[in-house]
């Protein structure tokens, strides 16, 4: 690999880590579970509203 290419390579790496940032897969799953809980309880009460109409 030439020096220039190597430089390009590192530059690309820097860019990607900056864009992707740290590994936050666990966080994403945790907040999605939280979101799922909210959606379920909301539709639960909405259902109660509809049956009581």
């Amino acid at each position: 690999m030439g020096v220039l290419e190597e430089k390009k390579e590192t530059a690309r790496k820097v860019v990607t880590t900056k864009e992707e940032g740290p590994n936050l897969k666990g966080t994403m799953i945790a907040v999605m579970l939280l979101g799922g809980f909210i959606v379920l309880s909301w539709f639960g009460v909405y259902w109660l509203y509809l049956v009581r109409l």
Binding site: P22, N23, L24, G26, T27, I29, V31, L34
Partner: peptide
């Protein structure tokens, strides 16, 4: 919610926690 979980996960990973939920 996202920021808090993220700071937990990053702290855990820095300490060497592995897997999806090792940080927890």
């Amino acid at each position: 919610a996202f920021s808090l979980f993220a700071s937990f996960e990053m702290a855990g990973r820095k300490k060497g926690a592995k897997g999806l939920f090792g940080w927890f």
